[in-house]
Design a protein around this nucleic acid. Structure first.
Length: 844
DNA sequence: TCCGGCAAGATTTTT
DNA sequence: TCTTGCCGGA
């Protein structure tokens, strides 16, 4: 049991919290005097127990859609309500910033201000927060840089080149993956070398790469993503007194998505929940740290209580080192742990759950768990086999329109895919049908070259020893400093034990041309001047520095001084216009940051930028269809889900075939995708898929056959697509070698024909095409030329001809400018919405 | 040093 | 298909 906290241990909130927190201002009015806390309203017995249990360790096995987030937030609220904890004693860890924000919001909605002071954040953010505070203890600057995988790659590339390690088969990717894996196991170059087979020259080379990589990061005062966790663990292990401070502070640790934790994260949790020894506690007390009321009979501070939530069936990050043994071994790691199973699903219909159960049931070596719903069977799952990726996209788009017409909001629909490359076809069709959509994740804003350039200027100011950032901006924009000069500067720095930045300041000693020397000095001066801007101009009576420039001022100063923005604006390349706009967007973001974080400095901004994840920019309020990978879909839910590309080679992905446990992990991924759907689930696949510019034959995924046939209503089964393929000329027939033969038949048993339906992938049906237009013409031409009908005037009543849909009549034109949309009733293809600017149409 | 042209390689998933 | 890297010429 946890020692209840007494009032004297209360932080500043004590005064306000003298009475138990009353929730009636938040919609719980009238239940205040009831025996049961309103926090438990509407929960089933298992959920209630998960909220109310008090003990050292709690494992909540939460199946998909079992109300996990709700339980977790209520548990946090309950801890505060029952005064088992003060907000500052709670550390809740989620996987994404998005999940953290949502949890913070929900707790705040229940408790209001009483929730202030909690740490609710990701593993990485929490670690950065701790590390910035304790940086000098482990030999880092508190303004250390955070390297993303691209930065690591660049660094590794230089090392591999310097060592000629590519002759041993090392690439930045392969070496990076191996280093990352080792770091996730808390190994470093030295510990690895001790166990490595050093008679193998390749191993020797790898150790050298690892060593140099670590050395470079250290010299640049930089940490990569894996270091953020690993160094925090190291900090706690090497400095017990530092660890004790955090162990004393965080009395309640809650970890979400525990199945996705890797060894380093596991170790971190372990470090944080260890007891503080009596000696150390005494030492702290002698140092004036308030610990008395936390100490037990022996004088020690017991370990914090730990709650973990997870579902090993949803573990999809094994490739990143996630180890489900963390969850399966929880009871061993924390003897006496309570385990609560949440199996009732509140999200999906029974049909969807039955499919999910059937699929995941094919994974052996798992504790059986059956999701069930009290919500009824619901609609059948819809299956569709398209001829091509574009055809599939057309089906998705048409079906979205059908759902939308039936009253479903765009924001309640999502399209999932295994690889980012699949977005292309989807986007093309969605743009054409004027369906509002957004791609979640994908090429991220902060990964764009021009944004990284601008950020590199900021990083160079914040962390002057970061060579990577300096070398990035050295010749960006072009200022006549080539690779030769760059190398000269770099070796000059190495030879004289200077940082790259110091080398720049002293470059006159290098004997370069006067012009180049001047340019380098000017850049160094620009960075120095920017750093001066940040220095506070005065100090308040309380010793708080004020008056330093904020992030946007510094950024604008750097952009002006370097000419980065001006060069892009002056370029003839139309792409540079977009790049300039992106940089302006970044400036706008720094201004937003200033507003939202008045006390936030440059380093805070850079930290935030470094740790944003794909799912984080998801804006639920926007009325758009969401497109995302299956990985980013985890933790989200939608009324209708389109799971596309359910093909061999894609799901399971080709790359997973050789990996041990690969197909099982891919199955879990499929399972995660299925269980995101509340009411409608669509599974689609294509018989051919464009890849690297040419077209490959695709086979239905093995996982499809694991779903009981009666659950799927095939609008077009693989067998049907196959049999009809022979009757119509198709562009791809020539490439086909009859490989579909045995497949479809096992899947067609449930098919109920398609003849009566209209509006499904009209363009896929040879019968629906205008006469005299064989499929060969359109099979893959959608990627073709960029059209611009910007000036085309259309009005209701006009007749038009569409390249694919044939002739039709315009019913209505909506929107303005480039977003004008024609609502067209086609003679044979039905009703369509077309973006006038780019649709392949002409007026007749 | 910069730029254009051409060949080769790439794509699993992400904090 | 698209991006990256290498080569040769200015």
């Amino acid at each position: 049991m946890i020692t209840p906290l007494h009032a004297e241990s209360a932080p500043a909130t004590a005064g306000r919290s003298a009475t138990p927190i009353i929730l009636d201002s938040n919609g719980y009015a009238g239940t205040g005097s009831a025996q049961q806390s309103p926090l438990l309203d509407g929960l089933n017995p298992q959920q209630k127990e998960a909220v109310e249990y008090r003990g050292q360790a709690l494992l909540i096995i939460a199946g998909a859609g079992s109300g996990k987030t709700s339980v977790l937030t209520r548990r946090v609220a309950s801890l505060l309500e029952t005064r088992d904890a003060w907000p500052s004693q709670i550390l809740a860890i989620t996987f994404t910033n998005k999940a953290a924000a949502e949890m913070r919001e929900r707790v705040h909605a229940i408790l209001g201000q009483a929730s202030d002071g909690m740490w609710i954040s990701t593993f990485h953010s929490s670690c950065v927060r701790i590390l910035r505070r304790e940086a000098e203890k482990i030999g880092l600057s508190s303004t250390f840089s955070i390297y993303d995988s691209a930065d690591s790659k660049v660094t590794l590339k230089r090392i591999i080149k310097g060592l000629d390690a590519d002759t041993y088969g090392f690439t930045p990717g392969s070496a990076g993956a191996k280093i990352s894996k080792l770091k996730n196991e808390l190994a470093d170059a030295d510990s690895y070398a001790r166990n490595a087979n050093m008679s193998d020259p390749q191993e020797v080379m790898f150790v050298e790469i690892f060593r140099q990589y670590s050395a470079r990061l250290r010299a640049a005062s930089a940490l990569d993503f894996d270091d953020l966790i690993g160094e925090t663990v190291y900090l706690f292990r090497a400095f017990p007194k530092v660890a004790a401070l955090y162990r004393r502070r965080f009395r309640h640790l809650l970890v979400d998505e525990y199945q996705d934790t890797n060894h380093a994260q596991y170790a971190l949790v372990h470090e944080l929940t260890r007891p503080v020894t009596a000696e150390l506690a005494q030492e702290m007390e002698d140092d004036g740290v308030h610990v008395r009321n936390l100490r037990d009979g022996s004088g020690a501070i017991p370990g914090a209580s730990l709650t973990v939530v997870g579902d090993s069936d949803q573990s999809i990050y094994a490739f990143r080192g996630a180890d489900t043994r963390n969850i399966s071994g929880f009871e061993r790691d924390y003897p006496g742990a309570k385990v609560i199973l949440l199996e009732q699903n509140y999200r999906s219909t029974q049909n969807i759950l039955s499919a999910a159960n059937a699929v995941i049931g094919h994974n052996f070596d798992r504790t059986d768990k059956k999701l069930w719903s009290a919500g009824g069977d619901g609609e059948k799952i819809v299956g569709f086999t398209a001829y091509s990726g574009h055809d599939e996209a057309q089906f998705v788009s048409d079906e979205i329109q059908v759902l939308h017409a039936a009253g479903m909001a765009y924001r309640d629909m999502a399209v999932f895919y295994r690889t980012n490359a699949q977005t292309r076809a989807l986007e093309e069709i969605l743009v054409r049908s004027a369906t509002p959509y957004r791609v979640v994740g994908g090429t991220k804003f902060y990964e764009r070259a021009e944004i990284k350039d601008a950020l590199a200027y900021l990083i160079a100011v914040a962390n002057p020893v970061d060579e990577l950032a300096l070398r990035r901006i050295l010749n960006t924009p072009k200022r006549g400093i080539g690779p030769a000069t760059e190398t000269a500067l770099s070796s000059f720095a190495d030879d004289n034990e200077l940082t790259f930045r110091q080398a720049m300041r002293n470059c006159a000693a290098l004997g370069l041309g006067p012009k180049v020397t001047g340019t380098i000095l000017k850049l160094a001066e620009l960075l120095d001047a920017a750093a001066l801007l940040l220095v506070p101009t005065s100090v308040t009576d309380d010793g708080v520095p004020v008056g330093g420039s904020n992030v946007s001022d510094v950024l604008e100063f750097l952009l002006g001084g370097s000419g980065l923005l001006a060069v892009l604006r002056g370029s003839r390349d139309p792409q540079d216009e977009v790049r300039a706009e992106n940089i302006e967007e970044l400036v706008a973001q720094t201004k937003d940051f200033n507003k939202e974080n008045p006390d936030g400095g440059l380093v805070d901004f850079l930290t935030q930028v470094s740790l944003v994840a794909a799912a984080d920019d998801l804006d639920d309020a926007s009325g758009t269809v969401s497109l995302m990978t299956l990985h980013t879909a985890k933790g989200l839910e939608y009324e209708a889900v389109f799971l596309t590309g359910v093909e061999e080679g894609l799901l399971p992905h080709q790359m997973s075939a050789n990996e041990p446990g690969g197909p099982a992990e891919e199955r879990r991924l499929f399972y995660v995708g299925i269980t995101r759907a509340r009411k409608r689930l669509y599974l689609s696949l294509a018989m051919t898929r464009a890849q690297f510019g040419d077209i490959n034959v695709a086979m239905p995924s093995r996982y499809l056959q694991e779903i009981p046939a009666e659950l799927i209503d095939w609008k077009q089964s693989p067998g049907m697509a196959n049999s009809r393929g022979g009757t119509q000329p198709r562009a791809l027939n020539a490439r086909r070698d009859g490989g579909f033969g045995g497949f479809g038949n096992s899947l067609t048993s449930s098919s109920d024909g398609y003849g009566g339906r209209s509006g499904y992938g009209t363009s896929a049906k040879p019968a629906g095409l205008p006469p005299g237009k064989p499929k060969t013409e359109w099979a893959n031409k959608i990627t073709g030329t960029v059209r611009d009908n910007g000036s085309l005037e259309l009005a209701a009543g006009d007749r038009i001809r569409h390249h694919d849909f044939g002739e039709g009549r315009v019913n209505q034109v909506t929107g303005e400018g480039t977003k004008r949309i024609a609502h067209v009733q086609f003679d044979t293809a039905g009703a369509k919405k077309l973006l006038i600017k780019i649709a392949p149409i002409e007026k007749i």
